[in-house]
Amino acid sequence: MATLTLESLGKTYDSGASAVSGINIDVADGEFLVLVGPSGCGKSTLLRMIAGLETVTHGSIRIGPREVNRLEPADRDIAMVFQNYALYPHMSVRENLSYGLRNRRMARAEITRRVEEAARILEIGDFLERKPRALSGGQRQRVAMGRAIVREPSVFLFDEPLSNLDAKLRVTMRGEIRNLQKRLGTTSVYVTHDQLEAMTLADRLVVLRAGKVEQIGTPLEVYQRPASTFVAEFIGSPAMNLLDGVMEHGRLAIGTATMRLPDAHCGPVRVGVRAEDLRAVPGGTQGALPVRLSYVEELGSQRLGHFDCAGARLIAAFPSGQGLSEEMALMADPEALHLFGADGMRLT
């Protein structure tokens, strides 16, 4: 149990390329922090820096009160679950689980106790004597988790641990990881590129972009108040709609449609609106956008209409029964609009 503090952390390669920079994150004891971002945003590098598998060139990493920048991975009191599980193929499940403990010369009785305990929690007791290749993907995943648990570390690190599983198993394992982490109360850092996984697992999530923190917050905060157009488009499915508009004297104009907005800003803006905040209104309503239907996606519980709005693409979610016509008008409440400046940052 410990806190994890990253202070102006950065890594620059010998070639001068910067992988991550200026990272300031405080992870509370027992918190589940998710690092999310597109490929190449530096999230895995950041995790590997915490693990000690990548060197740190700037700033510091502290686990509890202890700075661990220069410590070997083994001395940092962390455990990591790898994307490909990294189970030792020549060892049985039991040996895989106990390897880290045996290396630390723990008493044999204690090793047995911990392995049995982890096997019980993860329900892998039946195949402790099997080799990893004789296990299914989900079972391997559990063994990889077990190897982290037996160590009873201060911090768990997860590097996209669910990306090799099929969709259904992924949802199940997601729930199990969440429950397990709550039960053990171990501080955890989890890397994923899947925004849904990030939303469902995180106490707080960190959206990374090009090696920098774009936004930190609880999943709902990030969803409801994205700090930039990047976050707005990345978090949430379908992605938030973004339209070009102009603010003038408390009025927002998007193409021909105008509406009152209590905002003092003046000039061109990017207007963000979530698919579920749009609703169909009769043509000619004040502030409604005239749109043209291009196609419909049926999701069962709802239907997503894909529209063309004066050259921009727009997605709106409707209840499954609603009829959609070729020419429609869509509108959102002023409170549901997100305004972003020309630089992509949130205005209010």
Binding site: I78, H90, Y99, N103
Partner: peptide, 29 residues
Amino acid sequence: IPASLREAAAIDGAGPVRRFWTITLPLLS
């Protein structure tokens, strides 16, 4: 031999020599 195996072993507290004898050599057999 996947690099992650050696990394996992490093996190599991095996030094370079032990890593060689317990991970690399058996996998090279």
